[in-house]
Design a protein around this nucleic acid. Structure first.
Lengths: 265, 265
DNA sequence: CGAATAGTGTCTCTAAGACAATATTTC
DNA sequence: GAAATATTGTCTTAGAGACACTATTCG
């Protein structure tokens, strides 16, 4: 071996000496409360960005008591929400964000996860967070959706605004071709409740009749439970039949968003 | 306000208090040669898995001469293919693989990228690789597609077989709703050439007439160049018109795979 | 000339969307 | 009873796929 090859071998053998990196897991946790899409945020209790709101997350336990990435994401989410059981919560990897300068302390690579869950309890501020809360996504001034009263916009720490944006777009897309909208609901739900999930996430009104027929026509999307709600709607209307999530992993045919006509040129 | 606190904190900060992790970038580079889908592999010249084939990749330059993740992926790809210009090559993040025990040396988090390019030149073995080659994906025994002569299967190093599988599935899905099939072709191409890309990646025969009409009917997928090929097909047939990639980022309506009827229950 | 292939025409069937109608429930 | 809403029905239109046909080029 040449000296160059030797040096390279050593570098490959223990690059920690030369390039220390930290890896964190951040979670974009979405839920629907009172018909409004909320994201879980924590207020940072320590620098950098002390006092600013951020996505919940933390360093991956890499060596001692090491954990896989999805486990780390589930742990962070459970810690912040106070939930022990993440039974009905959907969790998937969103993407990894690793540009230099994201974190002023050091080089940090963040693996972001996306979570959907049914209306979850109010969070309790964790160990290193000053506060934690479910925040309506419209109050963060990300989507060009609804304009909100000025001054309510909170600027997120790090590059978390971009990560949240990516998560929202992923969520909107996933509702099209997967049955994951049901992850926002309880075990049993009605078709109008399912429609409300789509309308909330897509920020779009859907035609009740057509939506109803379409959902029932997609094989494996929902299956009937045989019983109905106890009461009609608050403002009238008949009782709705109850369904549970079916066994399909993909919707075929998909439920496409009405307003994607711009085609993202 | 937090300025002073930040500065004070940074001065006293010791990154070694956190678990050290190494971050690599691996690339699933796909191209089509002679109508066969190939992936770029390197033969490892050093332990672990010395002599085994693996995806090209390497450690991210994290601190000195630090680089963003997409840049690191592009660098790895350029090094292995010997290309200076990745002009027509599409590169996107595939996912991050970080379970403990992936690498016997230490905790390694791999950010995988997926690349599509037109028939690329034969690679030259890089600095730390014994060899590098474009390998037909069917020879790796991943997809339940074509059975190959026994003994040709090469078991990939690390968890690279799984990463490659994910990359192939992503590629197949992306052809449905994006115009990325054109990334496998040159600047100008014919509709039958484009159809061959779909047939190769999907491993599925498509109806020539319907495909032709469909491609032309999707707004922004391809645009006409006004001229045609010099010669007809090798076994006869008229000259085909030449097209170039259009300005659409998403195909609307999408080109759905014929054989997804199992619906992934 | 015969085979292969580019490109177009036509027909059928499915699915999406607009709209209407009916039944049920709340206030 | 009036309003709201779940659910079903009907009609129109777009798009996917099967099939057929013509024109062009290679050997």
């Amino acid at each position: 071996m040449t000296q160059d090859a030797d040096a390279e071998f050593l570098a490959a053998y223990d690059p920690r000496q030369y390039d220390p990196v930290s890896v964190t897991v951040d979670v974009v946790a979405l839920t629907i409360r009172d018909g409004v899409l909320h994201v879980l945020l924590v207020q940072r209790g320590a620098p950098p960005f002390q006092g600013r709101w951020a996505l919940p997350g933390g360093f991956v336990r890499a060596v001692n008591d090491s954990e896989d990435l999805p486990d780390a994401a589930a742990r962070e989410l459970a810690e912040e929400t106070g939930l022990k059981e993440l039974g009905r919560v959907h969790l998937e990897q969103l993407g990894t964000y690793g540009g230099p300068g994201r974190d002023p302390r050091m080089r940090v690579i963040s693996v972001a996860y996306l979570a959907f869950g049914p209306a979850l309890p109010d969070p309790s501020a964790g160990t290193d967070a000053a506060d934690a809360a479910w925040v309506p996504v419209t109050s963060l001034g990300l989507t060009a959706a609804a304009s909100q009263p000025p001054g309510t916009t909170r600027k997120l720490a790090f590059d978390h605004a971009g990560i949240l944006s990516d998560g929202l777009e992923r969520a909107r897309a996933k509702l099209e071709y997967t049955p994951l909208a049901t992850a926002f609901l309880g075990e049993e739900f009605t078709i109008p409740e399912l429609r409300a999930v789509y309308e909330t996430v897509w920020n779009e009104e859907l035609h009740a009749g057509n939506f109803h027929r379409k959902v029932l026509s997609v094989p494996g999307f929902v299956e009937t439970t045989g019983h109905s709600t106890e009461h009609g709607g608050r403002r009238g209307g008949p009782r709705a039949k109850l369904y549970r999530s079916g066994d399909a992993r993909l919707l075929h045919p998909a439920l496409l968003r009405p307003s994607q006509e711009e085609d993202l040129r």
